[in-house]
């Protein structure tokens, strides 16, 4: 875990700090808000659900609760990858629904100032539909910030 709080004197109101869980998919680093992450699981067997939307891999049993797992690679337009020891399921909570997202591996937790986040220029013409809410540059690397609410289509969590 890496915490990068550099200057506590910055105005917390004007430039608030948020915490992000970061993960990798196909060599790119992504982040989702810590507040929406319940836990991170090692890869476990996922039971397919007939008739489920394309991006739904299936369900897992998490201590007696059924959790839907999404194929994040498919949502992001990436080719599929065979799960390995580093594959993780990030269990998130969106609108009171618990959803797991499959990622290549989980990296760390980062603190980000609002001023560090940049919106990416729109290149899909549908601003409301964009699930990438911005990027943040840190040490020459770019963190891509994901808006989970927009990532999940309603028929995927219900």
């Amino acid at each position: 875990m890496e915490y990068a709080v550099e200057d506590d004197s910055l105005d917390e109101v004007n430039d608030p700090l948020t915490q992000w869980v970061t993960f990798f998919l196909e060599n790119e680093k992504y982040g989702v808000p810590v507040s929406q992450v319940m836990e991170v699981l090692r890869f476990t067997e996922i039971t397919p659900v007939p008739g489920a939307p394309d991006a739904v891999m299936g369900i897992i049993n998490l201590r007696g609760n059924v959790v839907t797992v999404l194929d994040t690679r498919k949502k992001f337009g990436l080719s599929s990858r065979v799960p390995d020891d580093s594959t993780r399921i990030v269990v998130t909570t969106i609108n009171e629904h618990v959803i797991g997202i499959l990622v290549d591996n989980v990296s760390d937790v980062m603190w980000l100032r609002a001023s560090e986040m940049e919106t990416t220029p729109s290149t899909n013409g549908e601003e409301n539909a964009k699930f990438i809410q911005g990027v943040a540059s840190r040490d020459g690397d770019l963190l891509i910030l994901v808006d989970l609410l927009k990532l999940f289509a309603e028929n995927e969590w219900k």
Binding site: E28, F76, T123, A129, F131
Partner: peptide, 13 residues
């Protein structure tokens, strides 16, 4: 940097 959710013309950042 490849950013998903963009039009096909888009190569990356």
């Amino acid at each position: 940097v490849s950013v998903p959710d963009n039009m096909p013309l888009y190569v990356g950042l």
